[in-house]
Design a protein around this nucleic acid. Structure first.
Lengths: 125, 125
DNA sequence: TTTGTTACTTACTTTTGGTAAGTCAAAGAT
DNA sequence: ATCTTTGACTTACCAAAAGTAAGTAACAAA
């Protein structure tokens, strides 16, 4: 095994790949980015409605971590009831094409994956 | 809000995007695919060594779900001690470029993200 | 007879995510 | 004057996913 190219994956903190895949490796970040990409800006409850099955709690922590990484910006209007608008930053927008290409692959290969999945599950029973 | 384009994200089972993102949304699948892509075939313990911080348990469940989806093939040699070889299928290989483009983005924007992240954490204290 | 080998399981703990209720402050309804 | 509504969250509690460490199988070598 030629280990030179492989060992780079071993250390999480210093490895950009591991770092970004860890963000993808949470349940909601990529989806929130895609949703934000559909509109110029969206309010908290609008995102919540679109995704449907995300909890308020997870939507807040996801938006917060995306904000921390500089992918999403958050603008609070000091009104009552409160109004908060979220939008992708330029950095966030620059990520979108890469996620989209993934989605495109998913669309193209969805039936193939599903077929394989149900075949595999049959064998298990 | 123009909801036509947005509502597609709402249903997990029928939405290819949701389906593939859910697979990405586990902690290890993408990383295992990248590792397998570096070599023609790899044995269980070889993958385990390369990734380093994955548990045996999670490596088995990750490989099983990738196998179920038809992204990875598993070949068992009936020997003792056992030998099992894993490799990407054609479908698995076809996914690699899309993950790679993500990794490339991560490499290019890593410092920017890290800077934003530490800035954000400072404000919190 | 004990040890080593490889690819796993299993039981148990910790972390992550989900659920439902509560908070805040003011405007509008009763 | 009190009661309800509104939007963006928190908080307390519960469930699911992932991590840890030990065990298993089957045989060959020491």
């Amino acid at each position: 095994m030629s280990s030179e190219s492989l060992k780079i994956f071993a250390e999480t903190e210093t490895c950009p790949a591991r770092n970004v895949l860890d963000r993808f490796g949470d349940k909601w970040s990529t989806l929130v980015i895609l949703v934000l990409n559909e509109e110029e800006k969206l309010r908290f409850n609008e995102i919540h409605k679109v995704i449907g099955d995300i909890s308020q709690k997870m939507l807040t922590v996801t938006l917060r971590s995306l904000e921390a990484d500089g992918l999403v910006s958050r603008k609070v209007y000091p009104e009552i009831p409160p109004r908060v608008e979220y939008k992708l930053t330029d950095l966030g927008k620059s990520l979108v094409p890469h996620i989209s290409s993934l989605i495109k692959w998913a669309d193209q290969n969805f039936s193939s994956i599903m077929a394989s999945r149900s075949k595999y599950n049959q064998k298990a029973n």
